[in-house]
Design a protein around this nucleic acid. Structure first.
Lengths: 292, 292
DNA sequence: ACGCGCCTTCCTCCGGACGGAAGCCCGACC
DNA sequence: GGTCGGGCTTCCGTCCGGAGGAAGGCGCGT
C-alpha cells in the first residue's frame, strides 16, 4: 500500500475527504470496537428494557449494519435475547454475570436475612445500597406489600446527594470524592432535594455526627428515608442500609434503633470489628429527639 | 491450584488461519472484536469472581496486551472494577444491566412478595427459576435461615435435568427442546442424578401428569426439591417455583399444596388465565399420598 | 545481585470491522 | 392492486482500528 507516512505531517489529511459527516457526537464516542459493543448494551435502560434493532441503531448512533452484526453476536453469546415480538432485551447471561459483582449481589446474599427481618419488623421499604462512582446503586430492595411507591429497583442508580442511602455513602466517602460530588451540579428531583452546596455540606456533617441520614421528600414527594452505614472488616463504610416510609407514617424516628441494630448485624457478619463505640453513642443520641 | 479450564487456548495458533468459521462455533473462538470483549467477561464465573490481568489473559487465550486494553475499556465503562488488591471483578454496571432482563429480575420483582410469604410459611429454601437454553437460571433464591445448603445463588445456572425446577421447565418446554436435551449428555452430580434417557422421559411425563417435580438428591445429597410451574398470560409455562428442604425433613409432601398455591398466585399476578382446571386436579391428586 | 512474574507503554503491519447499497418482507395507505 | 415506506437482512470493497511483539518499570522471593 502507501509508503510510510511521516508521522508528524498533516499533509495527507488534506487529500482524504472526511467520510464522516457526523459533525457532533457529543455524548456517544464509541471509537473502539469494544466501545461500540458496550454502546449497544448501554442503549438499554430502565425506560428502555426492550428495543428493536432500528431503535438500538438510533440510540447508539451506529449504522444499522454494524448494529445488526453486533446485536447478532451479543445474542449468540447470551447478552441479549430476542422476544417473541422480534424486539431485543437483556439476556440472562448478563444477570448471571452481574450477580458476581463483589460489592453487589455477593453482599446482598449475606445481608438478605437481616433485610428480611427488618422488612417484616417495620413493614417499610428496605434498601441496601453501595456506591459506584458518583451514584448510589441499590443492591437489594424489599418493597412494602401495601404501599408501593418505589423508585428503588434492584440495580437502580441515583445521584448520591438525593437519597438517604446516598448521603450516608457520601458522608463517609473520601474527602476527594466528596469534593468532586459537591463541585458537580446537584440535580433537583423535588422541591426538597438538596441542591445547595452549603446545605449539602452541613447535611453530610450531620450524618457523620449522628450516624443517620434523614431525607424527607428529596427524591420523591411524600417519602421519608432513613439510612445508616454498614461497615466492613476494616471498619470502613462499604454500604448503606435504608428504609423508606410514607411521610405520614407516625413516629418514623422510632425506626432508627432497629435500623441501626440491623446495620450492626450485617456489619458484624461482614467481619467488621465489634461494634464501634462511636456508632453506639451516636445511635443513642439520635434516638433522643424522638422522646420529647 | 484449581484445575485449568479447557478453553481450547493454545499459545501458538498463528500457523494456519482458521478456515473461516462459517458460523458454527457458539462458544469457542473469539475471532471478532466483540467476541473478544465478551470473552473477557466470560472469564469470570462463580468460581472466579476475582481475577488478575494475567489470569484473564490466560483464561481467554488473548494476548496480555489485548487483554490489558480491553480490560481498560471495560473498566472505564463500568463493566469491570478494580479492587484494592489490584485484581478485577465484575462492576455494578453489569448488575444494573442484568436487572433489566425481562424474564429475569423483572419477573423476580413481581414474584418476590409471594416468595417471601412462602419462605416464611415453610422455612424452606425457596427458588424462582427460568429456562435459558439448556440450563435453568435462578432468578431468586431465598435461603432458609438455619440450614444453609445452597447451590442456588441468584443468577446460578444448572442443567435442566438435574434440578426440580429444571425438570418442570423441561417438562413443559417444546418437544423440540426436550429432544435436544434428552439427546445431549446428562451430566451426573450425585448417585441419584437422572442420567438415563428413558428415566428422564418417564420423569418428565410424570411431572406433566401431576404438575409437580420431585427431585431427591439429584443435584446435592441430602436435599429434596419440589417444584411447580408458573404460568404467564398465554397459560404457557414461563418459570418454575421450587422449594428445597433437608431430606430428613418430615412430611415434605405436605409442602406441595402451599407451593402450588403460591405458584398460582404468581401466575395470576402475571396475567395468567384464571386457574386452569388441570392444575387444580393434579394438585389434589399429588397431595393424596400424603394423607394415608 | 539475580531471576521471575506481573503490569504497562510504544509501535508497526495486517485483517477484521465499517457502512454503502441493494434485496426482502410486511403492513399502510391511496 | 399498486405503491410506498419502514424495518430487517445480506453482500462486498475499502480502510482504519486492533492485535501482539518487544521493551521497560515495578515488587518479590531465592
Amino acid at each position: 500500500m502507501s509508503a510510510t507516512v511521516p508521522l508528524s505531517s498533516t499533509s495527507r489529511d488534506g487529500g482524504a475527504p472526511r467520510p464522516r459527516p457526523a459533525g457532533g457526537d457529543p455524548c456517544a464516542g464509541p471509537a473502539t470496537a469494544a466501545g461500540r459493543t458496550l454502546a449497544v448494551l448501554a442503549a438499554f435502560g430502565p425506560e428502555h428494557s426492550s428495543l428493536s434493532l432500528s431503535e438500538i441503531s438510533r440510540r447508539t448512533g451506529l449504522s444499522l449494519t454494524t448494529t445488526h452484526r453486533l446485536v447478532g453476536e451479543l445474542r449468540e453469546w447470551g447478552a441479549l435475547e430476542r422476544g417473541a415480538d422480534g424486539r431485543y432485551g437483556i439476556g440472562l447471561r448478563l444477570l448471571e454475570l452481574g450477580a458476581l459483582a463483589p460489592h453487589g449481589l455477593q453482599l446482598r446474599e449475606l445481608a438478605l436475612p437481616y433485610l428480611d427481618d427488618l422488612h417484616h419488623a417495620t413493614r417499610a421499604n428496605v434498601h441496601l445500597a453501595v456506591r459506584d462512582g458518583h451514584d448510589v446503586v441499590y443492591v437489594e430492595s424489599l418493597r412494602a406489600r401495601g404501599a408501593v411507591q418505589v423508585l428503588s429497583r434492584l440495580g437502580g442508580r441515583w445521584p448520591l446527594h438525593a437519597t438517604g442511602t446516598g448521603q450516608v455513602l457520601l458522608a463517609y466517602a473520601s474527602p476527594e470524592l466528596q469534593r468532586e460530588v459537591v463541585a458537580s451540579p446537584l440535580r433537583r428531583f423535588t422541591a426538597n432535594t438538596i441542591t445547595d452546596v452549603e446545605e449539602l455540606r452541613r447535611t453530610l456533617a450531620e450524618v457523620r455526627r449522628t450516624g443517620v441520614a434523614i431525607a424527607e421528600n428529596q427524591l420523591t414527594a411524600e417519602a421519608l428515608a432513613l439510612a445508616v452505614p454498614v461497615r466492613g472488616p476494616g471498619d470502613e463504610v462499604i454500604a448503606a442500609l435504608g428504609v423508606t416510609v410514607q411521610r405520614a407514617a407516625v413516629k418514623s424516628h422510632a425506626l432508627i434503633p432497629v435500623l441501626a441494630a440491623t446495620a450492626r448485624g450485617i456489619s458484624r457478619a461482614l467481619g467488621a470489628p465489634s461494634v464501634s463505640t462511636v456508632d453506639r453513642r451516636s445511635v443513642r443520641r439520635t434516638t433522643q429527639p424522638d422522646l420529647h
